[in-house]
Design a protein around this nucleic acid. Structure first.
Length: 128
DNA sequence: ACGCTGACTATTA
DNA sequence: CTAATAGCCAGCG
């Protein structure tokens, strides 16, 4: 385990200091378009924004998902394997899988069942 | 100012 | 099949 969570606080993300807010906004916007019962990946969103190589930034943007309004359904965003890698950022972490299950997405062992089937492609839905 | 870490992904061995 | 490596960009010590 790392010595310490890099941005365990991350409370000072950018509440007032606007910077790459545009990128964040785009990520949030796309994430909000995810229909209930569907999931997508960081890379898919990143690719849709033209930053396919910056999937990490999408994940980082999700850090502000709970602080913006309307709230962003970050629980519908998982990694390329359908694994709930971000569940540790929820409170409680199990709430992520719980919410997904509640929406009709089967989750087993922190992994989305039939991920490919539930996959929601932003580029496709947005008209790309 | 420099270096490390991180909610990722794709490629190579 | 799994493991390791590189690329990516922003925030924090």
């Amino acid at each position: 385990m790392p010595k310490k969570s890099a941005s365990e606080k991350l409370k000072t993300l950018r509440p007032s200091g606007k910077r790459e807010e545009n990128f964040f906004e785009l990520v949030f916007e796309v994430a909000r378009q995810i229909p209930k019962g569907r999931v997508t990946s960081y890379g898919a969103i990143a690719a849709c924004l033209g930053a396919k190589s910056s999937a990490r930034m999408v994940g980082w943007a999700m850090n502000g998902a709970g602080r913006v309004k309307p709230a962003v359904p970050a629980h519908r965003v998982v990694n390329r394997n359908g694994l709930l890698t971000g569940k540790h950022h929820f409170s409680p972490p199990s709430s992520m899988a719980q919410q997904l299950k509640k929406e009709g997405v089967k989750v087993k062992d922190d992994q989305v069942v039939d991920f490919k089937k539930h996959f929601w492609d932003p580029a496709e839905e947005l008209g790309f």
